[in-house]
Design a protein around this nucleic acid. Structure first.
Lengths: 270, 270
DNA sequence: TTGCTCAACTTGTTGGTACAAGCTGATGCA
DNA sequence: TGCATCAGCTTGTACCAACAAGTTGAGCAA
């Protein structure tokens, strides 16, 4: 039942692409052209099967490729939808200082300023340092750290997770870090009051596909990478914290302003 | 021929996961445990088919999920291999100045310092500004820009593409920008000699799955996102360039040092 | 009108088969 | 010995069939 689709006379150029890829390429082209705008639904598998003279499985392979590219998503019973991308800008270089109302970064402020509604769940726990965290905090692997963990939402859509690790010595010096509740005035301000002023930080940005855990927390399907942001904060020569933030890659972009640059106004798309 | 694998007595907990997902989860666990270390080969589809008492198609679905996660890769005739991740660090905040030997960023220097061999192909062309570039360069959509394009390799492995766009007015002021050859002393130094000194820049970092073009240029298969780095350079109030760099997300990590921080030495893993 | 059921759509899962095509090592010929 | 060939492994592509399960709207019942 195998049939190689050679269509030489039909296509002009020698066409050695497998059928499922032809399907994917054709649909991708139509999506790019705007024939299927963001948010619209694609024809059903059986319709595409008829159109491309291919079996349902072959069409599914093609669609699956587009899902992996992050171009479309599917839901059982509903069909395939062209994905929308509304990117949220994160200004990471704005130096953290005491004027920020809460928790070290400008999440709530930025989201509210964008006219969206922020919400989050929060927990505190003591946890042994993983290799990654131990390296950055300059503590022994497995030694105790205080973890303050946020799961953040924008308009009730899962947006990011943020895990901040503090070394044990700092938690002794600033005991409220290890207490379960929120720190009303913000951790940065609280630490400053305790004599710990963050003087600089080191940011690392990486990307990869989400682990199953991350897929669950951020509610991302196949084809959406995560953006990993690790910020290690220093006061003098001491590491005072390590913050690992996981973003949905399709909804976020990080910005850094360095040196002298004019006032920015207009917004732009990816 | 459909059979739901309910295995209640066997598994204890109610097991409602589809079979292909059970396969993926089991293999992921074994890879994480080190049973299949990076670079090693997985059992063949038919062996897995026997082990999991599933059809080859079902096993392929499970393996496909792991490929999409970026955990393994497959090659026809060879089998499935657990992916290795050697991450290359890119220090993006080191302020660009005249001491850099070439082309605006520290690519060759960094790669050579890491004991790897850099190589690149290069081309120059005049091209109309896309919406993305026009926005950043503050020029009209479709107006002429000079594009200087690099395709970069590390030890002959495709690593990144870098497209730098210069506005037309700048190319008139610094005509060698539009000439096809390399600028020996580096574009930054050349522009400084022409009276254009970059005073600051604005960086944007995003991630997504590669387009087919990017997959080809960077030689990435399914499951590897790209890291997009856009740097817009300013001199006084004028935008002098916009550089869009595309990295393989599995091989690169970007770093920013901001504020005062101690000397860093030890290296670390993701 | 309101609310429920159900048919008819959608995609998801699992099985089967067949052949194409890439890789490797054994075999055999020169 | 050296080289070409080929058998036997691997994954890749393509088809078929059947049933599970989520969604929606039509239509009937209260």
């Amino acid at each position: 039942m195998y049939q190689q689709v050679e269509r030489v006379g039909h296509d002009g150029a020698m066409n050695k692409q497998p059928k499922y890829r032809q399907v994917a390429d054709a649909l991708r082209r139509e999506i790019d052209n705007g024939a299927y705008p963001p948010g619209s639904r694609l024809p059903s598998e059986s319709e595409l099967s008829t159109r491309f003279e291919a079996s349902r499985n072959t069409v599914r392979s093609g669609l699956n490729a587009l899902v992996s590219e992050g171009l479309i998503s599917s839901s059982q019973g509903l069909g395939y939808e062209v994905r929308k991308h509304e990117v949220f800008e994160l200004n990471a270089s704005r130096f953290e200082n005491l004027t920020f109302p809460q928790n070290g970064d400008a999440y709530s402020t930025d989201v509210t300023n964008a006219g969206r509604r922020p919400s989050q769940t929060f927990r505190v726990e003591m946890t042994p340092a993983t290799a990654y965290v131990a390296d950055r905090l300059k503590v022994a692997l497995g030694s105790t750290t205080v973890l303050r963990f946020c799961h953040r939402f924008v308009d009730d859509v899962p947006w990011s997770t943020q895990a901040t690790y503090y070394p044990d010595w700092l938690a002794k010096q600033a005991p409220r870090l290890a207490e379960p509740g929120d720190i009303a005035e913000g951790t940065t301000r609280y630490l400053a009051a305790a004599g710990i002023e963050q003087a600089g930080y080191f940011d690392e940005i990486a990307t990869r596909m989400p682990t199953p855990d991350e897929s669950r927390l951020l509610d991302v399907g196949a084809g959406v990478p995560v953006l990993l942001w690790t910020r290690t904060g220093y006061a003098d020569d001491r590491v005072i914290r390590c913050t690992i933030t996981t973003f949905r890659g399709d909804l976020n972009r990080m910005n850094y302003e360095i040196g002298t640059l004019p006032d920015r106004n207009g917004d732009e798309r990816p």
